[in-house]
Design a protein around this nucleic acid. Structure first.
Lengths: 174, 174
DNA sequence: ACACAACCATAATGGCGTTATGCTGTCCAC
DNA sequence: GTGGACAGCATAACGCCATTATGGTTGTGT
């Protein structure tokens, strides 16, 4: 979490911290609002006051860690010497994001979004980078990337997962 | 559905037929057991008598359509002239399965499995085919394949989705 | 001081999957 | 042919969980 929320002091900060930990380790459906509130030593009333809904709390913390990951990936793509839209640059960025998510423990929170999670920003970035833009290719690549993360969350060796992801390539039309 | 269940005559057959239609078009969580039962002109009592749970009914119909798809994919892989474990044969099989799922309308039922859906048979087939077998690569490829299906279910052009899937490749270690 | 909002706890409410219970027919065992 | 067991199904609880309603407390601007 960013520092502009005093973690472990304010109830809102404790809720956000608890959400990162719980949503990072377990699927969305398996963590209840009661658990979140209890982990933050508040009641569900505080949760709904600050975040509106369970999905709202999830979106809040996910937007945060997702932004940090996207910043790194965009940086990697921008630093790529090859002309924009190259397959290798995109795959390198995906590996950067993978390493970040694994290192920080953001496995489920980035790899296993809940049903109502709209707006796939990772897919959008991939779409914007790959040329010519096929609206589906970004989603396909994002899904593959997330599957590697979930595999790690479920116990697969992260090195093997990374290699499986690195084995992917894609060719762009003309 | 196969013919060994007299569709539209027995309550069990009507439930299975309703499940194929409802689960094929909408996400698992958005279809209720009451809707399933109503579509089959029975009550939830019949559903739980025959299938044990909502997930049980889903698994029953999914196993059926999944088996049909896997048969086609395995056939395509077996018919491939190249030595076993080649990337192109696997991708060709994935496209065969994609066409089948799109044509039969099995978009969500094969592309958007619910949370508790264990035993990813598609991933297992891909793992068994790709050599050397990385347990994660099959899952990654299966996830990419499903993402293309879900994209079609959400309105994307199926031709574009197919091309995005066809753009994927992967290289196998040594 | 006083209004008023932010903050948060407590107590309903409602949807939905599941379970419990009971009724009805059918199919052997005797 | 009759009694009992059992499949097939309806009906009515039950329990979990997200959400909402409500109310009290604390701070803050005026």
């Amino acid at each position: 979490m960013r520092e502009w929320i005093p973690i472990s002091t304010s109830p809102k900060g404790r809720l956000a911290l608890a959400a990162v930990q719980e949503f990072g380790a377990r699927p969305f459906d398996e963590v209840t609002v009661g658990e979140l509130a209890a982990a933050a030593t508040v009641t569900t009333g505080a949760l709904y006051h600050h975040f509106g809904s369970k999905l709202g709390l999830y979106a809040f913390v996910r937007d945060d860690v997702e932004q940090r990951m996207l910043d790194r990936m965009e940086g990697a793509i921008a630093a790529s010497p090859a002309p924009s839209g190259r397959s290798t640059a995109v795959m390198a960025a995906l590996l950067i994001g993978f390493d970040f998510a694994v290192r920080e423990g953001f496995l489920r929170i980035l790899g296993d979004p809940p049903a109502g999670a709209d707006h796939d920003r990772l897919a959008e970035l991939l779409n914007a980078t790959t040329t010519p833009a096929s609206p589906v290719l970004g989603r396909v690549l994002a899904a593959a990337w997330r599957a590697a993360l979930v595999a790690v969350a479920e116990g697969s060796d992260s090195t093997q997962a990374r290699e499986a992801l690195a084995a992917l390539e894609f060719r762009l039309a003309s």
